[in-house]
Amino acid sequence: MHIYDKLAKAVVEMKAAEVKLLALQVLDEGFPPDEAIQKGLAVGMQEVGRLFSCKDYFVPEVLVSARAMYTGFNILKPKVIEGAVADKGTILIGVVEGDYHDIGKNIVKLMLEASGFRLVDLGKNVSVDAFTRAVVEEKPAIAAMSTLMTTTMDSMEEIVVRLTKDAPEVKIMIGGAPVNQDFADSIGAHFYGDDVDQAIVGAHKLLGIKA
């Protein structure tokens, strides 16, 4: 089995220690670290995403795989020559004000990262102001919002209104259990995704790139 496959497998099997050893081996044996990230860690994480979607994996498994993935990532990333990893673009993500449910958002963030995007995480309970300000400052290609509560859906609309004014070029993507395509259309968001797979598809689509 190729070392990249081993990396991917170790991520899927949630074995952080093994990922660490393999990452060091990658460097020892002179494989390009950026390739190891993409063909090893990211592939593993994509498989994790698939398992999550088909309910083989649940939140704990995803979190542990992610931690395994990050041990490898933190070893390999500093060795990557600037520009070698394709940076598909920056995505700013956050859970809207009043909502502290961040499990879903964290998983979405993780998978986007694993697919080659650069993520800026604003965390949970992010106010309309803070969100808008961050978009203006960071100038991401995509602004992604999450909420799990019906009570906090309204602030998504406010953010969209503010962004169309203050940062008209940014693409807006929303998700979370209570929102749906109708709601996205009604507030003028550019994309709605109902799970991680959709989130990845959407990010690529919004930026017109291939997965």
Partner: peptide, 11 residues
């Protein structure tokens, strides 16, 4: 902590 605890169940 929610995430840490969920991770603990495995690790």
């Amino acid at each position: 902590g929610i995430e840490d605890f969920l991770v603990d169940t495995i690790t």
